[in-house]
Design a protein around this nucleic acid. Structure first.
Length: 254
DNA sequence: CCCTGATTCGC
DNA sequence: GCGAATCAGG
């Protein structure tokens, strides 16, 4: 498999959405997790909290110098470091769980259809083109956004808990228009934002996979209807439904 | 063990 | 440029 534009776009999107390399690899198909990571680095996509990342430049330099034993000739070590600098930023571990993955790249689209955005480019905020069919914002999400609810695990989230999106007006990017009639009115991965329902419909990778796309129940990632599915009171074990509904329709035949 | 991402290095 | 092998933390 080669890195086509579509595949690269999917990689970028999913990587930035906080999907793990494994998930991305599986969604893309035909590539390994390593391939995804390698490609991501080559694309200079970067800086996802890594388990193994050394973030102390000093230590890193030292380690490097040590490792390359006789390599470097002159490496004047900056020994002067009066203040221990706290570089570490507290990073919330990605909670990416059964996160929804993969917008299957659809048919290539003709360039002219996404040519420009002529109108008044001034849209300093929430005046999103709600009804606008084609072009929407990027999935720039600081943290993994999508959570689903497993049969036993109920992810509760108080409305106040959710960070109000600190990026109200991310740089607007153009995404390909819906190339086919089937995809019209379907909300794709590329169109998710903070105020539309992210409830997945269908299965990732399938042609008609899309998201609910209705307006969210404020403070939640889903619309009111789907919040009803996602957040349920914990029932006593014996009273629980024998087959708790899975958000994605359960395991898929492989 | 499993997972994760980073890095290296032969191709 | 690509990705398997390897490393290393959780």
């Amino acid at each position: 498999m080669s890195w086509t534009d579509e595949r690269i776009a999917t990689l970028k999107t999913m990587w930035e959405a906080g999907q793990t390399a494994s998930q991305i690899a599986e969604a893309l198909g035909g590539v390994s997790r390593n391939a995804v990571i390698g490609k991501a680095h080559r694309l200079e996509l970067q800086a996802r909290p890594s388990p193994v990342k050394p973030n102390d430049p000093e230590a890193k330099a030292a380690a490097a110098a040590e490792a390359s034993a006789s390599a470097a000739a002159a490496a004047p070590e900056p020994v002067a470091t009066p203040e221990p600098v706290e570089v570490e930023a507290p990073k919330p571990a990605p909670v990416a769980e059964p996160v929804v993955a993969a917008a299957k790249p659809v048919a290539p689209v003709e360039p002219e259809s996404v040519a420009e955005e002529p109108e008044d480019d001034e849209d300093d905020d929430e005046d999103e083109d709600e009804a606008a069919p084609a072009v929407v914002a990027p999935v720039r999400a600081p943290q993994p956004i999508l959570r689903s609810v497993g049969p036993g695990g109920f992810l509760r989230q108080a409305p106040g808990e959710q960070q109000p999106p600190s990026t109200p007006a991310p740089p607007r990017r153009l995404v390909p228009a819906k190339p086919s009639a089937e995809m019209a009115n379907k909300t794709s991965l590329l169109e998710l934002n903070d105020r539309i329902c992210k409830w997945p419909l269908g299965h990732p990778g399938e042609p008609d996979f899309h998201f609910c796309g209705k307006a969210v129940n404020p403070g939640f990632p889903y619309c009111v209807d789907h919040c009803g599915h996602a957040y349920q009171a914990q029932l006593p074990r014996r009273d629980r439904r024998p087959t708790p509904p899975l958000p994605f329709g359960g395991p898929r035949p492989r």
